[in-house]
């Protein structure tokens, strides 16, 4: 049965159900429980924005706090994954990847290949992405293209509560290392989520809105901005087909190309910086593989080539807006 859950609670439920189902699933992160070594309440935080709240009561010591030592505990999660566990480690903000990236991209990502196929590393790294909270340059980035670049890593970017639960369950069951990107502005978003357990396979884009004029690909928070743009454009008689790839690695290019074959026009919306972004990547792949179907240039709507700024005026300019998306679509019509 479906009922409404927030994006945040959907992830929490996925973790709870998988941890109940499989004893090898463990979770760890800074303040994932909270209150360790303190006089007050245990489970005082449940993660910095409360995503893991309440899990400690359900799974006990299988959810663990960590000191602030990302290199060690993300690495430990990778090591434990290679030794039969299924760790879900939280890298609080994706911006902190700099502290622990070696353990992710030189270690976890490469074991399988480098060891001649002998290793499996079923690791999940949960991490917050995105701007909008006035959190400035070191807490607002969308660095998923960096992870997408690395062979051996899978990258998941859910945009709604239903997908968040199903993709988290798949991420935990998947036998490769997965970077699970949670847009912090989506945590409060509500949507229908089935109570039972279900996994959404990777490499299956979601066609969020059908339309015959322009294909708009967007991920994470940008799906919602693209949908806003699409509603406005529909009033002008322009029908957008909005596609959420849900995973950037693997990327369901087939669904995107199928749509482009029909519309002949493509706009890719990506909250990351433009160079070597998902927008650039998807544009290039579609251009290479479906050039004949395109009736105009591919348009990219991204953040500009600058760090996320603090001041609200600047941050609002930084984040791709429905207006900018609509403008890009109109330019193609």
């Amino acid at each position: 049965m479906a009922r409404e859950l927030t994006f945040k609670d959907a992830i929490n439920e996925a973790l709870a159900q998988e941890m109940a189902r499989d004893e090898t699933v463990i979770a760890m992160g800074e303040d994932n429980v909270g209150g360790m070594g303190a006089e007050g309440e245990i489970d005082a935080w449940g993660g910095v924005l409360g995503v893991t709240k309440g899990l400690h009561a359900q799974v006990g010591d299988r959810i663990m706090d960590t000191p602030i030592t990302e290199s060690a505990f993300i690495g430990a999660a990778a090591g434990a994954a290679a030794c039969g566990m299924r760790p879900v480690a939280e890298l609080m903000f994706i911006d902190f990847m700099g502290v622990c990236f070696d353990q992710i991209f030189n270690q976890a990502a490469k074991f399988k290949y480098m060891f001649g196929g002998k290793a499996e590393t079923p690791l999940v790294v949960r991490t917050m992405i995105g701007a909008g909270l006035r959190a400035a340059s070191q807490h607002s980035q969308c660095l998923y293209p960096v992870f997408t670049h690395i062979p051996g890593l899978k990258v998941v970017i859910p945009s709604n509560p239903y997908d968040a639960k199903g993709l988290m369950i798949q991420s935990i069951r998947d036998n490769d290392p997965v970077i699970f990107c949670e847009h912090k502005s989506l945590y409060g978003l509500k949507g229908d989520v089935p109570e039972g357990s279900y996994a959404i396979p990777f490499n299956e884009a979601n066609v969020v809105r059908e339309g015959g004029d322009v294909t708009v690909v967007a991920m994470g928070m940008m799906v919602h901005k693209a949908m806003e743009a699409a509603s406005a454009l529909a009033k002008e008689g322009i029908q957008c087909e909005v596609i959420d790839p849900r995973t950037t690695s693997p990327l369901d290019l087939e669904t995107i190309i199928e749509s482009v074959e029909n519309t002949g026009r493509l706009v890719v919306v990506d909250e990351s910086n433009p160079r070597c972004s998902m927008a650039a990547d998807i544009s290039a792949q579609v251009t290479e593989q479906a050039f004949g179907s395109l009736r105009g240039p591919v348009k990219m709507v991204t953040a500009p080539h600058c760090p996320p700024p603090f001041s609200d005026v600047l941050e609002d300019l930084y984040i791709p807006s429905p207006e900018k998306i609509a403008e890009a679509v109109r330019a193609l019509k």
């Binding site: 909270g34 360790m36 070594g37 303190a38 910095v48 706090d65």
Partner: peptide, 13 residues
């Protein structure tokens, strides 16, 4: 100061 976020330094150090 005794804490990193909610985590006591008695535990984390």
């Amino acid at each position: 100061n005794g804490y990193a976020e909610s985590t006591g330094s008695k535990w984390s150090v």
